[in-house]
Write a protein that binds this DNA or RNA. Structure first.
Lengths: 327, 327
DNA sequence: CTGTTAGCGCGTTCAC
DNA sequence: GTGAACGCGCTAACAG
């Protein structure tokens, strides 16, 4: 930078200003500086800048896995909005080990991000303490946490699952099955199951363990769940699959069996990002706008970084019950 | 850090060593330092460390889009290997605008990453100059570039597409259609199309523009392509979709129509990450190990950062023709 | 609009 | 095994 300053016959600070706040530098100086920069191929050193200004222009994001289009959409939303403001995304997956999360967070914070995003309802107490001490804006997503650390952009897994189940009840289905992830390890599955059960109570329907099923994510698993639930309880008339893949897998299985959907059995899903819109019949499902979660989170982080007041620090992006033809 | 030093009754430099090279510090000092750190909740400042040591422990990765499970897998592979060595990933999508890439690169380099990964065959001359001047290890992926900047971990889009087409020819198909991305903006699509055409020549089959089709990625687009190609040329007996989504979309469309696959028409794909394994019939496709690309790239970057010699700086991870039941 | 001064919090280098 | 001095490249704060 000293070189640039010398070449442009100004001081270092003027070069600095020309780069970050160009309108505070005279036209001519800016011109000479720009020339010097292109001539020398100078690339500013943001590490030094960050140390001096105490701002890195980095946002750290922690998602369960990077390799999953649901989180991919959210990351894309984050990245798009952040980049427009000159911020970049440092991405990590949390994995399953909760001890790992603390070490991870420690090294992440050592990079002094200006803000953080978590697609997790966290967190050990130590994690919470670290985050509080960091004094940076934080957005949690994934569910509406009971005890938010800071800001939240989420949707209610409970409400959406309850609404989907109520919808099935209103449509006249009386034996409604439910499929979700392992509730011991997946808090979102837990919430969706709670929503399902609450709806059953509201509908005055009995809760039947033979048609409540936990299984890993996958098409095949959806087809299997369909087999098992219909065998366990032959008069089952609807199944709410709390993820897109299962629902589509089950639909395909129905096609193979020649079962009419919803004639023989009604099928409802959760999320319909990529595959659901393409199947026949169109999937009735609880939709969540994943990319919007990322965009909103980024906007809120940027507002807080700029020192602006954030009107609503807990945002519910909600859900939509898409009324397809499958239920 | 000064606080820690005072608390542990050592100098700052000893604290620094205890953190980065613990074996160069006496057991007792290390113990006192560790205590002081947990007591105060100190988190080291890697920004300052980076400025002093000229190493950030950041790797920057540029992929076409984050929101795509294919690149997601590669990013996951990168992230996994890097994190084991204390490195983190800064992720960007390049978008379509080539001018945008230069600005992006400029700001990325200003963060002084210790290495870079591109899932692109790049690059304007200015881009190449910037990268060369940065003097950091670089891995390109996505295709085997004719003029590598530095290291490469890739697969040949040409070879794999040619092999897939030849496989279809060997299976007896004679009117083989082809679907790819816009060849003006997507170099990988260009290469795959070249491979397809080369195979047709080798098979002595005519090249028929009515059954070569470009379309954006998506299930629906795959179904549409199936409609269009079969309408354009009713005796078409196979289609090679050069991406998973199209192939699966077309399979689903065949199911809707009650067409036997491969009885009425054979279908082949490219990649089969998430969806293809679940469809019926199993998808014949050209498989590329996306996660491995990320892992290898990370290992090569780390080796070079450590100053080690990298045996093979251009690695071809190859492809596999998976012989499913759809063709 | 521009410049001067004084750090930011570490790691390198060299000495002990 | 430990420490002192110095500087990494930039920007905040203040002055002009």
């Amino acid at each position: 930078m000293a070189d640039i300053a010398k070449l442009a016959k100004v001081s270092a600070i003027t070069v600095s200003r020309a780069l970050s706040t160009p309108d505070k530098v005279s036209e001519k100086a800016r011109q000479r500086i720009a020339n010097a920069i292109t001539k020398t191929g100078y690339v500013p050193n943001r590490v030094a800048g960050s140390l001096a200004s105490n701002r890195t222009r980095i946002i750290a994001a922690v998602v369960p896995t990077i390799d999953n289009s649901v989180y991919g959409s959210t990351l894309q939303g984050l990245s798009d909005v952040l980049r427009a403001d000159g911020y970049h995304l440092m991405v990590c997956n949390s994995g399953v080990d909760p001890r790992g999360e603390e070490t991870l967070l420690f090294t992440l914070l050592s990079h002094r991000p200006d803000g953080m995003f978590f697609h997790n309802v966290l967190h050990t107490d130590k994690t919470r303490r670290l985050l509080r001490a960091a004094k940076i804006p934080i957005v949690e997503a994934g569910d509406l946490p009971s005890r938010p650390i800071d800001m939240v952009v989420a949707y209610s897994n409970f409400d959406s699952a309850k609404a989907m189940t109520l919808y099935l009840g209103r449509k006249g289905y009386r034996r409604i099955g439910f499929v979700c992830n392992d509730i011991r390890t997946n808090p979102r599955a837990r919430e969706r199951r709670r929503g399902y059960l609450a709806a059953l109570r509201a509908l005055n329907l009995p809760q039947d363990p033979r048609i409540i099923y936990q299984t890993p994510l996958g098409f095949r698993e959806g087809a299997e769940a369909l087999s098992i639930l219909t065998r366990n309880c032959p008069d089952i008339d609807a199944i709410f699959f709390s993820a897109e893949l299962w629902a589509v897998g089950a639909l395909l299985e129905c096609q193979r069996r020649g079962w009419a959907v919803p004639g023989r059995i009604a099928i409802a899903g959760y999320d319909d990002h990529r595959i659901a819109p393409e199947v026949e019949p169109t999937l009735t499902s609880a939709r969540v706008q994943r990319m919007k979660i990322g965009q909103l989170a980024a906007e809120m982080l940027l507002q807080r970084i700029r020192g602006e007041h954030v009107e609503h620090s807990v945002v519910d992006v909600g859900y939509e019950i898409f009324e397809g033809l499958s239920a």
